[in-house]
Simulated scan of single mutants.
Amino acid sequence: MAGLAAHGVQYRKRDFAAIGEEAFVPPTQTTQLGIYSFHEKEIGDFHVEGAVRFENTQQENSVTGEDLSFDAFSVSAGGDVHLSDAVRVGGTVYRTERAPTTEELFSNGPHLATNQFELGDATLGKEVSTGIEAAIRHREDGHFTTVNLFYTDYKDYIFEVETDAEEDGLPVFQYMADDAKFYGFEVQGGMDVTTLGAWDVKVDALAEYVRAKTDSGNLPRIPPLSILTGVDFETDRVRLRAELDYAAQQTKVSANELPTDDFALVNVFANWKAPAGAQDVTLSISMHNVFDSEARQHTSFLKDLVPLPGRNVRFSIRSAF
């Protein structure tokens, strides 16, 4: 019966000050003290682990003199078991508490990088989440599949929402809290397809989906269903890859938020490693968005103004000395 335990204390102090007309957060001081304990143990074919953490966060606004203190307690437990040499199942349950950040509490000004006027809320309390995750993994004979499912229930989930107001020519975004629910899945798989001379051919795919809403409606900037699939051709020194990056349309939007269309981007990559015994050098070249498609990322504050980059080429050299 093997086991492992780790305990610790974490201290963090942050003095924040932004200077100039673009400063949207006043000078603040954040002090954070955390104490944690982690345990894991092997019991036959079972692997179990658990953790607890207590954290005190103090946020002081140097302009208004507001001094806020938050005590947060988090706990989690999980485990997994090998049903066979190829199949493994597991899960985790947790309850976590998070103190609001400086920006969520004290923002008050234009944030030009995201083209918005941000307003914090100093009355925000702790964000509390209770959730469960489950996973099953299968790997054998040159192929693998992983399925992850999750559900999280939030009390006072903190997020930023666009209002109908305007300040300094910018739309006003207000931090607020509401109870919310998140659920979704992640499915990933891959396999070795064949060998063509010196080339090994492999394929892989990843699908992700999340649904999130509060008691009063949809949450803003939640990503839609996304699918990434690709094919690799590899030798000892060369790797070629082509992939398709697809995002579905997102029509489940909050008030004052526009939906986004679906898009599919084709990307290609090529890596070359120097011969064995030479300097450890890798040359890489890639082309993203090969067909110059218009794509707008729903999670971006700027999606209505700025799409993702069009066709672009990147080149890099990596070396280990």
Rank of each mutant, 00 (worst) to 15 (best):
Y11G: 10
K13W: 00
A23Y: 02
P27W: 01
Q29N: 12
T31A: 14
L33D: 11
G34C: 02
I35K: 15
Y36K: 13
S37C: 08
H39K: 09
E40P: 07
K41V: 12
K41F: 02
G44F: 07
G44T: 06
Q59G: 05
T64K: 12
T64W: 08
E66R: 14
F70D: 13
S76Y: 05
A77I: 07
E97H: 12
T102D: 13
T102Y: 01
E103M: 11
L105K: 08
G109M: 12
A113S: 14
A113D: 10
T114F: 10
G120Q: 00
T123C: 07
L124F: 02
E127D: 06
I132N: 09
H138Y: 15
H143W: 13
T146S: 15
N148S: 15
N148F: 05
N148W: 02
E162C: 08
T163V: 13
A165L: 15
E166V: 15
Y175P: 10
D178K: 13
D179H: 03
D179W: 04
A180T: 07
K181R: 11
F182P: 05
F182H: 09
E186L: 12
Q188F: 08
D192Q: 14
V193S: 06
G197V: 03
K202Y: 04
D204G: 15
A205W: 05
Y209W: 10
L219M: 12
P220K: 05
L225R: 08
S226C: 08
I227F: 09
D232W: 00
R239N: 02
A242C: 05
L244P: 03
D245L: 00
Q250S: 13
T251D: 15
T251C: 08
E257V: 12
A264H: 01
F269R: 04
K273Y: 01
V281K: 01
H288M: 09
A295Y: 01
A295M: 01
R296D: 00
P307T: 08
P309Y: 03
G310M: 00
G310A: 03
S316L: 12
F321A: 06
F321H: 11
